[in-house]
Design a protein around this nucleic acid. Structure first.
Lengths: 206, 206
DNA sequence: ATAAAAATAGAACGATCAGTATATATATCA
DNA sequence: TGATATATATACTGATCGTTCTATTTTTAT
């Protein structure tokens, strides 16, 4: 069959099923069946289920960060506006409009630490790394936005992201991002960034 | 044996193991062995594993809310101070000092929605109800504190809680509560509540 | 065309899963 | 003492778990 396909398709299927049903609840057989791949093909590419989990999460990390940054940057605003736009992106995700109509089932990395609680487990560490990479991106935006304490602001925005994700997940609150956005506005103002609705509209207008 | 014991001990063991290792990864046999209870005793009290999960989460909801409220109220401050004290309580939890030295492994209810993603699943709904009850308590505090929009403030504090919990869990950040507390101060000020460190010290002093 | 590589089907592994059956023992309370 | 819970141990389902083995077929590259 097509060379770029088998292993890749296996990982993509794993991303989908692990994300929807969880890691322990998703058996190898279900992944194989859904992907239409033979069992030995899996074990030719991966030593174990754990390695498939890691591969799936690495793929998800790549996939998510690419989508997230592009969703933010396509708005074409200032760094301050992009920080705020990140919350609009979250709501798109919550509404199931982010990844080819796949329903929102929470953040795969938060969910991963729920099933792998030991901090030194490779899966848990991969989740922590994913969050670190996003935090780094937010730091860049916060710094470009002229925040007094860009590290502190980025950390705060990240915490608001996590809060919105969990609120959307647990309480089925599709608009949690907008609520978090208002809090972000207050925090950004405190960091010396102008976030008045007017100035934002002026940026967009004409 | 002691009447108040067998079923109760089973549920408490389930709370501990489900909380630490997750729901699907924790087999019935491990719970029975750890609790020192016969298998048939479990099925005399519970129809299925799912019902044990529900019982464990109900117990955890009770246990957690009682601890949380008492940890906040023992500070004896004003309603505004209690809202801020909630973040100190979180850090106690994160440090493993809240529940008889049991290490922090995240919020069992957030973790539950990670493993039961369907919103109408009884386990997921129980998790949502738990969060609703905490939000109700925060609304009471926000209202007593004289917040302009007590619903909005309570919602914001709740979101900061979730953000702190997830940040502590994923990134092993034991002090996430203190960071969230600073954000809460800013938000509360915006809601017309005096949260200057000075006024708080004045409340405590002497 | 031929050799090497990749993917296939299918059986089997031992372990564990949730749940049931049976039969014995231990309490509780009249 | 005797009747009635309640708990016990143990073995047993049938299903599924992750993983390995063997042997065959298909694809790729020379």
């Amino acid at each position: 069959m097509a060379r770029p396909s088998k292993k890749e398709h296996l990982v993509e299927t794993a991303v989908k099923l692990f994300g929807r049903d969880g890691f322990h609840a998703t058996g190898i057989d279900k992944i194989l069946q859904e992907a239409g791949v033979a069992r030995m093909t899996l074990y030719k590419h991966f030593r174990s289920k754990d390695e498939l989990i890691l591969a799936a999460l690495r793929r998800r990390d790549e996939q998510f960060r690419i989508w997230f940054k592009s969703a933010i940057e396509k708005t074409g605003g200032t760094p301050a506006e992009r920080l705020l736009a990140s919350f609009d992106a979250l709501d798109e995700w919550f509404a199931g409009r982010a990844f080819a109509g796949v329903p929102f089932t929470g953040c795969s990395f938060i969910n991963a630490t729920a099933e792998f609680s030991e901090a030194n487990h490779p899966v848990h560490q991969l989740a922590a790394e994913h969050k670190r990479l996003i935090l780094e991106y937010l730091r860049l935006l916060a710094s470009s936005a002229g925040a007094r304490d860009s590290d502190g602001l980025a950390w705060a925005i990240s915490l608001l992201h996590e809060g919105a994700i969990v609120t959307a997940q647990v309480s089925s609150d599709i608009h949690a991002g907008q609520g978090a956005k208002e809090i972000a506005r207050i925090v950004m103002a405190q960091h010396g960034i102008d976030v008045s609705t007017k100035s934002l509209e002026n940026e967009d207008a004409y």
